[in-house]
Design a protein around this nucleic acid. Structure first.
Length: 299
DNA sequence: TATTTAACCTGGACGC
DNA sequence: TGCGTCCAGGTTAAAT
């Protein structure tokens, strides 16, 4: 499923294939794909047609394409989230429709079109107003995601601020890592991988971590994201904005995620799976010693 | 206010 | 083969 590295690969594809093009038509085929657009599909279609995409931006797992208005002024963007199974594909206009094709955008004088395809429809597109970023007013972000923190790959990510905010949290560490208002772009898979690399158990209290541990964790979060981004980049195909909405190309590099019962690559101890937040967490019980309460719960 | 839970959704895997 | 159940997980509204 798309996390930061996958979304960044999509953003790079959009920057190459979509930026500079003017929307000729929009077809919304599934209302759920535009459920977060206040005016619905007809409104999105009417307001987007005739506008030109100026850039391709990203924060965490959100993408947006700022629009040049008809009079040249800026103010809105097409915002997208891929959810768990969403794909943004650039396809020839005569290519067969995908089974779960929900939105089609055609461009003026172009034989390729942008398609939003999403099996589980957790993702979607909307048109949103751009507002100044809270920490850097010269930078615009869609209003919808103004509350989301920068991701650790962002050059303006503030390590000291993150450390301070994390250490004020009373919740478990993994829950904090998945909180997009604290740090964006980290999902269930890469949270588990980063925690394993840092040799920290996700059930530890965030507020109980010392600064050195937080620094080590942040380094490993960046490391796992960078590795995944590199893997995503190597599979990039020129025709598709993103070849693979299903996770896959980073699978070979996963150390604990999805490896219940298999040996930890570092110490050989069997990897454990526990239920957490209605999903699964994977960890090495030797490298990542659980806090006492968790030991009681999983034994 | 801060934190936690449940719901949304589809298709593959699995058990019977 | 067919049916029912479980599972995957990002986001957010609702509940605690």
């Amino acid at each position: 499923m798309p996390e930061l590295p996958e979304v960044e690969t999509v953003r790079a594809g959009l920057a190459r294939w979509v930026v500079g093009r003017t929307v000729a038509s929009v077809e919304v085929r599934h209302p759920r794909a535009v459920r977060r657009h206040r005016g619905g599909g007809a409104d999105l279609t009417a307001r987007l047609t005739g506008l030109r995409f100026e850039a391709a931006s990203r924060r965490g797992k959100y993408l947006w394409l700022p629009l040049a208005d008809r009079d040249g002024s800026r103010g809105e963007a097409l915002v997208g989230h891929l959810g768990m199974s969403g794909q943004l594909l650039v396809r020839p206009v005569d290519a067969e429709d995908e089974k779960h094709l929900h939105i089609r955008i055609r461009f003026v004088g172009d034989q390729q079109e942008l398609r939003f395809v999403d099996q589980r429809t957790f993702g979607g597109l909307l048109l949103d107003r751009l507002v100044p970023a809270a920490d850097r007013p010269e930078e615009n972000v869609p209003e919808l995601i103004a509350h989301i923190a920068r991701d650790p790959m962002d050059p303006h990510f503030d390590d000291a601020l993150f450390t301070a905010r994390l250490r004020r949290r009373g919740s478990e560490l993994k829950r904090a890592l998945l909180d997009q208002s604290l740090v964006s772009g980290v999902g269930n898979i890469y949270a588990d991988e980063a925690l394993w690399r840092a040799e920290v158990h996700g059930a530890r209290r965030a507020g109980a971590l010392d600064r050195a541990t937080v620094a080590r964790l942040l380094t490993e979060v960046r490391g796992v994201l960078a590795d995944a981004l590199q893997a995503g980049g190597t599979s990039f195909d020129a025709l598709y904005v993103n070849v693979n909405g299903e996770s896959g190309y980073f699978d070979r590099s996963l150390s604990v995620y999805g490896r219940d019962g298999l040996p930890c690559p570092r110490c050989g101890t069997a990897v454990r799976r526990i239920a957490f937040m209605n999903r699964s967490s994977y960890f090495c019980p030797r490298c990542q010693h659980p806090p006492r309460a968790t030991v009681r719960k999983i034994v």
